[in-house]
Design a binder for these strands. Structure first.
Length: 139
DNA sequence: GCCAACGTTGGC
DNA sequence: GCCAACGTTGGC
């Protein structure tokens, strides 16, 4: 069984649309211990929803991990950081805005809401399904 | 090791 | 533009 994740990105830096164009990318640049610990737990085949922070503030598509996480070194920030390769699966028919997430009772426990700065977080299968439904999309 | 100052992220 | 939350840095 795949696990489910929510990955946050600033769309002016790297957007889901860009991932669709690239088809596959190394999801990197994570420099936060809590987020890194989650990245290490991502397994090939896991599904990750992509959330745009900043002006969009919406969940806009589905991606899949295509390999195991691997080490990324950073001279400016010593330590072992991790990245993972993702492929675009499909965009949401309609993006699910943060405001809607906040008013949806079954999504009230999303870490996104409680800890807005965390960039990688696990979500439950139920939360994943709920978000897909709100986005008018199925796999 | 503590804490104040500062920087960054992200929402409003 | 502002503020809250959190992380980082540097003085002691």
């Amino acid at each position: 069984m795949p696990k489910y994740w929510l990955l946050k990105t600033e769309p002016t830096t790297y957007s889901f649309e860009q991932l669709q164009k690239d088809r596959k990318t190394a999801w990197n640049g994570i420099r936060n211990f809590q987020a890194r610990n989650f990245v290490k737990q991502i397994a090939p085949g896991d599904l990750a929803l992509i959330y745009h922070s900043g002006d969009d503030r919406a969940v806009c598509g589905i991606s899949r991990a295509v390999g195991a996480p691997y080490v990324e070194h950073d001279k400016k920030k010593p330590g072992e950081w991790y990245q993972v390769d993702l492929e675009a699966v499909k965009p949401f028919k309609s993006a699910v805005p943060l405001a809607q997430i906040k008013t949806t009772p079954s999504l009230k426990d999303l870490m996104l809401i409680r800890q807005s700065r965390l960039s990688v977080m696990p979500i439950t299968a139920k939360e994943f399904e709920t978000l897909l439904k709100l986005g008018g999309t199925s796999l």
